[in-house]
Design a binder for these strands. Structure first.
Lengths: 222, 222
DNA sequence: TCAAAAGTGTTCAGCTTACACCCATGA
DNA sequence: TCATGGGTGTAAGCTGAACACTTTTGA
């Protein structure tokens, strides 16, 4: 290699979220007894960044076709002493129903799902990275249909609303208004099946594949 | 250096916008007679990414204190043949009033300001990068006060509205409603000075340093 | 006194919010 | 028939779009 200049190490890290047990969970890999880290690693020679992120994801979760999006690149020199480390961070969303082992704790493996609301000690700045990813996820589900990526193929409106409330950490969504907005958005189609619940059975819906979620120009400001 | 794996080249590129002559302009550096590129270069050994972007900016524009924000990292292997190139792209906004030479064309220098609405042939995927930056800028000015970074310290409401209309490429903003929204946002303070115009003089305003532009939770969707 | 540009008020439609109500099922 | 959760309708209030209007300057 012709490397006159000092080339920095480049990694990808992936913040993988899933919804499980009425909680938002993030995929973490054990470093040692006390410390955890995000799934991640070096980018291979002829690999794209997204490709590398996807590889990490498949290795750790066994799932390949997922919502995957680049978030931010962290690269301040103080992240790690005596070395430069650049991390390109990706956000991934996986429905728990698509995880081979579900999101149950499998203590044998070095990978585990942790509630974002109760994180263990984390490597380097991975805690800050997860916070950032969570913030971005919260924005994302409000102006796009990203939340559907965290639900099974078919779901009830209550389950969808729960997903929003868990992610936003906000219990105050009004049921009637939530449903009305979805009806008007026209992005759901009902299936002629029902989910058994404690009371009246709930209609099942699915996301319309052909839905064009046209985010109207917003003009919050000015 | 201990480099068992092939380390990729990492660059920063900066998309610098300014407003000038009723047009949105981007800073470009000449590659050769026919081709232009974004200001950018390799990241130095112990330099942060943002630091490197700022260095590029000072070298090319002479301005240091600016709005500077990371946008995206481009790193597909097909960007450049027989080599891997990762570009961390930053967005910068500079008010033309702060440019040492203004934004007039200075043909002697290799740096020139080009209208984003009439770009010359560009290196690699720099055209796509500028498009992306413009899209992000348009979102940004609608939910933050970023547009002020492109205006002089003191400005008239008309100039502010013009800035929005130029950037959004949309002439249909209503004057009365635009002003009402700004008044209610409470982020401007009037100076007791006026700008001479063709007709009635226009009051000058400035951005309130203490303004907390609280972007209210939006809930477009659901 | 007229043109040009600054600056304001008012209406109406549509959307959001809050809340009350009815429905279907199992125990 | 009661508890549980699913599902809907509507009035009050707020917001945004459209547009007409007044004010201040220079020529």
């Amino acid at each position: 290699m012709e490397t006159p200049i000092a080339l920095p190490h480049v990694e990808v890290d992936v913040v993988v979220f899933t919804l499980c047990q009425h909680d938002l969970k993030v995929c973490l890999v054990r470093v040692d007894d006390a410390i955890w880290q995000l799934p991640g690693g070096v980018v291979a020679k002829h690999e794209g960044l997204e490709e590398a992120a996807l590889r990490q994801l498949v290795e750790k979760t066994g799932v390949s076709a997922v919502y995957l999006q680049q978030l931010y690149t962290f690269g301040t020199p103080d992240r790690i002493t005596h070395q430069r480390l650049i991390s390109v961070v990706y956000l991934a969303l996986i429905a728990a129903s698509r995880l081979p082992a579900g999101c149950a704790d499998t203590p044998a493996l070095s990978m585990t799902w942790h509630s974002v609301y109760a994180l263990p000690p984390l490597l380097l700045d991975h805690g800050a990275i997860i916070d950032y990813a969570l913030t971005r996820l919260r924005y994302k589900i409000e102006y796009s249909a990203a939340a559907f990526e965290l639900l099974p193929e078919e779901f009830t409106l209550r389950e969808l609303q729960d997903a929003y409330m868990i992610i936003l950490n906000d219990r105050t969504l009004d049921k009637a208004n939530f449903r009305k907005k979805l009806r008007e958005a026209g992005i759901l189609e009902s299936v002629s099946r029902y989910r058994e619940t404690g009371g009246r059975p709930a209609k099942l819906y699915r996301f319309r594949k052909d839905a064009q979620l046209e985010v109207k120009a917003r003009r919050f400001f000015p």
